[in-house]
Simulated assay, not measured.
Amino acid sequence: MDIKQLQADIAAAVRGNDVLKCEVQNALDALSCATPKLKYLEIHVLKKDENINQFTNDLQECMKELGVLKGILPKVF
C-alpha cells in the first residue's frame, strides 16, 4: 500500500470512530432520560400495589362485617 491509501484508511477509521462516539453518546443520553422515567414508574407500581393491598384488606374486613350482620339479621326479624 502506498502512503495515500494508508492516509485514506486512517481517515476512514477516524470518521468511523467519530460516528461510533456519537452513537454511544446518543445511547447514553437516551438512557439518562429513561432512568428517571423508570424510577417514576416503579414508584407508581409500588403505590398501586399498596392500594391493591389496602383494598384487599378493606374487602376482607367488609366480608367479616357482612358475615356478622348476616348472623344478626335473622334474629332481628
Score class of each variant (00 low, 15 high):
Gly71Ser: 07
Thr56Lys: 09
Asn53Gly: 06
His44Cys: 08
Leu69Phe: 11
Cys22His: 06
Lys21Ile: 12
Ala27Thr: 09
Ala13Leu: 12
Glu50Trp: 13
Val24Gly: 01
Lys47Asp: 15
Ala30Gly: 08
Ile10Thr: 03
Ile43Lys: 13
Ala30Pro: 00
Leu41Ser: 10
Cys22Asp: 13
Tyr40Thr: 10
Leu41Asn: 12
Ala34Thr: 04
Asn26Arg: 11
Leu38Ile: 15
Tyr40Arg: 09
Gln7Ala: 09
Gln60Arg: 11
Asn17Phe: 02
Asn51Arg: 10
Asp18Ser: 12
Leu46Ala: 15
Lys75Tyr: 09
Asp58Leu: 06
Glu23Phe: 02
Val14Met: 04
Asn57Lys: 13
Asp49Ile: 15
Glu42Gln: 15
Lys4Ala: 07
Asp58Arg: 04
Asp18Cys: 03
Gly16Asn: 11
Lys4Arg: 06
Asp49Cys: 11
Met63Asp: 06
Ala8Pro: 00
Val24Phe: 04
Pro74Phe: 01
His44Leu: 12
Phe77His: 10
Val45Gly: 03
Val14Cys: 01
Arg15Asn: 07
Asp9Arg: 04
Ile3Cys: 00
Leu28Tyr: 06
Asp29His: 09
Ile10Pro: 01
Val45Pro: 01
Lys4Pro: 00
Asn26Pro: 01
Leu66Lys: 04
Glu23Gln: 13
Gln60Lys: 13
Gly16Phe: 01
Lys21Met: 07
Ser32Met: 07
Lys64Phe: 09
Asn53Thr: 13
Met63Ala: 06
Asp29Thr: 10
Ala27Pro: 02
Val76Gly: 03
Ile43Trp: 07
Ser32Cys: 05
Gln54Arg: 10
Ala11Arg: 13
Tyr40Leu: 08
Met1Ser: 04
Gln54Ala: 09
Lys48Ala: 15
Ser32Gln: 11
Gly67Lys: 10
Glu42Ala: 12
Leu6Thr: 02
Gln7Ile: 07
Gln54Val: 07
Gly67Asn: 14
Cys33His: 08
Leu73Gly: 01
Asp49Arg: 13
Lys75Ile: 14
Lys21Pro: 00
Leu38Phe: 15
Glu23Trp: 02
Asp2Met: 00
His44Phe: 05
Met1Gly: 09
Asp49Val: 14
Ile10Tyr: 02
Thr56Phe: 05
Lys39Asp: 08
Leu31Trp: 08
Gln7Ser: 05
Ile43Glu: 14
Glu61Arg: 07
Leu59Glu: 11
Asp49Pro: 05
Asn17Gly: 04
